[in-house]
Nucleic acid binder design. Structure first.
Length: 779
DNA sequence: TCCGGCTGTTG
DNA sequence: TCTTGCAGCCGGA
């Protein structure tokens, strides 16, 4: 029979020493199904200088009885665009491929072993065009359901192709666990799980520990089996909840049997994600990581930022107080609400992130559970691997390379002071368009001849035919254009939302191509390519600036692909000239009513004609300054841009400094957040956040590379770093070094702006009278 | 006082 | 574990 299946995930298992593929999905009729395919086998290629019986015989000699080599075929494929002779070697057990790679590489005449590191289920998905988050029409036959928790089990006879259709309604389950942590960081071999909260489209529910946690873990597992979610979402669940749950089940000698395959446990995969057979286990933290506006990516911060759970509406408990709330009868209610608020936040964040995730999964071909955890580089790479298959291009191996530095974008010297009426114009997707226009890539790099020659660095790229990157980028840009056209003609809201997320995914992918090319670990790495892209970028932006000057504009500032212009010229005619000159699209990004620059590059603040205030680069938008300093700087900027009043700004600063001295602000306004970019013992100097981290570790907190350290500076003598203390150790602001906060945080942040108006530090700090100020400004 | 380490930011 | 350019703080010499 013919079935249309929306594919959730593709996995495999072994049966009697042979692999079989499981395609997990939802049918058009809404059944949850698994489609089995037993005839796919792992393979890889040898690139050879010449075909020959001797090589083939030698390959046969290496055949292992447990996983024999079952076929050897000659073929021709492309390697960096050039045709090469290959031998395709097929075996039985996916894990044996790695061993064969090592052995066969030594055969004389074999230049390289390639595509031996493509995961088996991905290999199937690519070769058979069974791509996750797509509807696939297939011919199937029904099988016995034994061993699977699904409505139907089928065996795959034939894949007929992809059907363009909106995703089905999926069952989503959000969960969050709380654990006992009286002794600092929780230890899963000691501290039990005290609460497990869940939420789906029907209900909210909590499992609360009585006695030990064995019972609630079992209840949670059975709840999952009963509700039968397609997608399970958590927040940092791959980093915390799943490993914790699994360790607890191990201790109790029970299984976390929650997959759609009977007797399967969550299993840790390549990117550290936990895969659950037949379901997509998605950790939303992976999507939250791309929100650069939120510095500390905690669930409450992200949920507050995205408006799904405002901070003032939720129960707020510091994580080191959980045990206290648990132990006190009268406080436990509050802890339960805290847990449920986390679960609700997770569920609602799912509504924000999942539609985008589904589109990105559909584009890259990575199942959503892997995608949520995979880095940008890996997402790009899987997309490229898929494209390579279509073009018969061999996927290059991953190589250990030394990173080589190269030059980046051009930054103009800013014109100091306040400017009125400034246009910001910028090239749309400059780097991908340069890559496309000049056909840049490792496969198009040539020594000379008829070619595009990059300025400064002089690398040459052949004109024709189009290289791998150019073809990919062209496809991404064209596809996005198509989606945008569709958006103009579609009224249905559900479809519009899907198309909106799709064009976002296409844009994200196109914009990541240049960074990927310059990434040393990329399979399609090209230092020359990346270097040429930025060199062309520099030339283009500088020439565009010259054109602007000739048209009567003054260059106030510019960075990489943007120019800040003021003057009497005609902006539309300028844009037309630049577009004609470079054949690249340029647009007015925004218009500033007022914009302010210091002498520093990459730092400015502006008031747009829509009344919006932009702050770029300054302390106010950095995560490693105390909130109090950021707040004052932001307000000073606002006063200056909106009211144009330096006096008002100074008055406000004085008042705030006075209030700090009088202890009128909450402790959290003084916390400084910095992350540990290295393991703690790798540091050469004892920086404040490193010292604070060490103190926290001594208290039993789990701190490692990547942790965000929140600390305050205490009053007292000695080095700053000796007085840096984890914020949760400090109870009162009377313990803080308020002079540090005034002299080293608030005043410098404010002076960064005000010194350009002749204000001195002394004037800010002295409790002066209004009269002094006025006279000062009259000078 | 200067330099290098360090972090977070920029397009 | 997608890129480079840049500002500015801190510790240590």
């Amino acid at each position: 029979m013919i079935k249309r299946i929306y594919v959730l995930d593709v996995s495999y298992d072994l049966e009697e020493g042979k692999p079989y593929i499981m395609i997990w999905g939802i049918s058009e009729e809404g059944e949850r199904v698994v489609v089995i395919y037993k005839d796919f086998r792992p393979y890889f290629y040898l690139i050879v200088s010449e075909w020959g019986d001797n090589i083939e015989n030698e390959i046969k000699n290496y055949s292992e009885p447990d996983s024999p080599i079952i076929s050897i075929e000659r073929g021709v494929r492309k390697y960096y665009g050039k045709e090469v002779k290959v031998i395709k070697v097929t075996t039985v057990i996916p894990e044996s491929v790695r061993r064969y790679r090592e052995k066969l590489k030594s055969i004389k005449g074999v230049e390289e072993v390639v595509e031996a590191d493509i995961y088996f289920s991905m290999r199937f998905s690519i070769d058979m065009n069974v791509i996750p988050c797509n509807w696939i029409e297939m011919e199937v036959e029904r099988l016995d359901k034994k061993g699977y928790r699904v409505d139907n089990v089928y065996v795959l006879k034939k894949v007929r192709g992809i059907i363009d259709k909106n995703p089905p309604k999926m069952k989503v389950l959000a969960f969050d666990i709380e654990v006992y942590n009286k002794y600092g960081s929780p230890d899963s071999s000691r501290d039990p799980i005290i609460i497990i909260g869940v939420k789906n489209d029907k209900e909210e529910k909590q499992f609360v520990m009585k006695g030990n946690d064995r019972e609630i873990i079992n209840s949670f597992a059975s709840y999952i089996r009963d509700y039968d979610p397609d997608i399970i979402i958590g927040y940092n669940s791959n980093g915390f909840d799943w490993p914790y749950l699994l360790n607890r089940t191990k201790i109790h000698g029970v299984k976390l049997d929650i997959g759609r395959k009977v007797n399967s446990q969550p299993n840790q995969g390549v990117y550290g994600h936990f895969s659950i057979q037949g379901r997509l286990n998605v950790d939303l933290l992976g999507f939250a990581m791309s929100i650069s506006e939120v510095k500390v990516k905690s669930l409450d911060n992200v949920a507050d930022y995205l408006g799904v759970m405002p901070r003032e509406k939720r129960a707020n408990i510091e994580w080191n107080e959980i045990a206290k709330f648990w132990e006190r009868e009268e406080k436990r209610e509050e802890l339960l609400k805290y847990n449920m608020d986390d679960v609700r936040s997770t569920y609602l964040l799912g509504e924000v992130f999942l539609p985008f995730g589904l589109e990105l999964s559909k584009l890259t071909g990575l199942p959503l559970d892997q995608l949520s955890q995979a880095s940008v580089g890996n997402r790009v790479e899987w997309y490229m691997i898929r494209e390579a298959f279509k073009y018969n291009e061999i996927v290059p191996n991953k190589l250990e390379r030394e990173g080589e530095e190269y030059g980046g974008g051009y930054v103009f010297e800013p014109m100091r002071g306040i400017h009125e009426g400034v246009y910001v114009i910028d090239f749309s997707s400059m780097y991908p368009n340069i890559m496309l226009k000049y056909n840049i890539g490792p496969d198009t790099l040539v020594n000379d001849g008829d070619c595009h020659r990059a300025p400064e660095v002089n690398h040459c790229f052949r004109m024709e035919p189009k290289g791998f990157y150019a073809r990919i980028i062209e496809r991404l840009l064209e596809e996005r254009k198509k989606v945008k056209e569709m958006l103009n003609n579609v009224n249905d809201n559900a479809t519009r939302k899907i198309l909106e997320e799709r064009q976002k995914a296409l844009k994200v992918m196109a914009n990541a191509m240049y960074g990927y090319m310059g990434w040393v670990n990329a399979r399609w790495y090209s230092k020359e390519g990346a270097e040429a892209v930025t060199a062309w970028g520099r030339k283009i932006i500088r020439e565009a600036a010259e054109i602007a000057k000739a048209e009567g504009f003054i260059i106030v500032y510019g960075d990489t692909d943007s120019l800040f212009l003021k003057g009497k010229g005609d902006i539309n005619s300028l844009i037309a000239k630049i577009e004609e000159r470079f054949e690249l699209e340029i647009k007015v990004e925004k218009i500033y009513k007022r914009v302010f620059f210091t002498k520093a590059k990459k730092r400015y603040a502006g008031l747009t004609i829509d009344g919006k205030i932009d702050i770029v680069g300054f302390e106010a938008v950095r995560g490693d300054w105390a909130e109090i300093a950021k707040e004052v700087q932001e307000r000073v900027i606002e006063r200056l841009l909106v009211e144009g009043s330096v006096e008002q700004a100074i008055k406000m600063c004085r008042e705030i400094i006075r209030n700090i001295r009088h202890g009128k602000y909450e402790l959290n306004k003084f916390v400084i957040w910095k992350s540990l970019e290295k393991e703690i013992n790798q540091y050469e100097t004892e920086l404040p956040h490193v010292k604070a981290a060490k103190k926290a570790m001594k208290m039993g907190f789990l701190i490692k590379k990547g942790s965000k350290i929140g600390f305050v500076i205490l009053r007292g003598k000695g080095k700053l770093s000796d007085r840096a203390e984890p914020y949760y150790n400090v109870k009162s602001i009377s313990d803080l070094d308020l002079d540090y906060y005034i002299d080293k945080q608030v005043v410098p942040a404010v002076m960064r702006i005000l010194e350009y108006f002749g204000v001195t530090e002394k004037q800010l700090k002295e409790e002066g009278r209004q009269g002094d100020l006025t006279s000062f400004f009259n000078i």
